[in-house]
Computed example of a mutant assay.
Amino acid sequence: MQPWQFLPVHPELRQVIDTLLIMQVDDFSCLTVSSQFYHPWSAQTSMFLTLGEQVVKVKNYGENEFTTYPANFVMGPNLVERMVQCPNQHYVLGINFRPGALYRFCGISIEELVNQVVEASLIFGKAIDVLSQRIGAAKSKAEILNLVETFFFDKINKLGALNTFDTAIAKLVQAEGNIPMDEVAKLACMSEKQFERKALERLGMLPKLFARLTRFSKAYMIKETNPDISWSNIAHQCGYYDQMHLVRDFKLFSGSTPTVAKQKIQNSITAVTAFQNT
């Protein structure tokens, strides 16, 4: 079976949730690949709920020791290279938020959460720990989905409407980062300086970096899902001026060249294949 499964996001929740993902591994030792996974830079904010008993460990590039994460945690934008050590038995629900959504939930400047991990209860209250326990005891994916939807429907009913900044960033994401920043600022009805300040508050970074990371993430995803596509083809699809600009972003955001990244991606594909054949 596959180690992970995407769950459908309810249309009314798509303003705050990008993707829902369940990852369940009964025994990593049965695989031919390591349970350690490389995590490049990412502009995305996420929440992970541990549904089993074992939790993940993570270390940043240059560190010697792994740090044990809380069972349920919120992760801010990741602007460092990380290595994730999954436990041998791994059962987790991942929730990737839309850009700006985490700020709408907590009102805390996302700039303060860059490269940080905090207990989910500090953002969503003790109810999130109760939700994690109930999801862990759920008997079906449909029951899990119902629990998640009920929790977030209650949350979004208390949120205000999307503002002009949110809609402008949504356009930028839809264009995979390929819109000039002055045009995006105009969509938000702001000056470029105002737009930059708002981006730091709601995204945790300046809009140009956010756009570059959005484009890079698209390129990385294409290679993960279509490993035989050439890098020059990917550069063209993602709006890079040429392949060298793609190489530059890979060196900055993943700490390696596309050639090295290809091997890391191939290892992940091998892991998926191993699960599918069990």
Results as ranks from 00 to 15, higher is better:
C106K: 07
G177C: 03
R212P: 00
R14K: 15
V84A: 08
R104W: 11
I95V: 15
G52T: 13
I179H: 04
F165K: 01
A235S: 14
P87V: 03
I179E: 02
V130G: 08
L31D: 06
I156T: 09
S256F: 09
A43F: 02
G255R: 12
A188W: 02
W41C: 09
A137H: 10
M1F: 12
M221I: 05
H90W: 15
M181G: 01
G177K: 03
W41F: 13
A175V: 00
Y240K: 07
Q2L: 01
A211N: 05
R197K: 15
K141N: 13
I108K: 13
K218Y: 06
V55N: 02
L131T: 09
I229E: 13
T150H: 10
S42T: 02
Q36H: 08
V148N: 09
L31C: 06
M221T: 14
V55T: 14
F73E: 10
T259Y: 05
C189A: 06
N146W: 13
Y91F: 15
K59F: 12
I222Q: 01
S230N: 09
F153W: 12
K264D: 03
A235N: 08
A142V: 14
P8T: 11
A127G: 12
N157I: 00
D129A: 08
S230K: 15
Y240R: 13
M83P: 01
N226R: 11
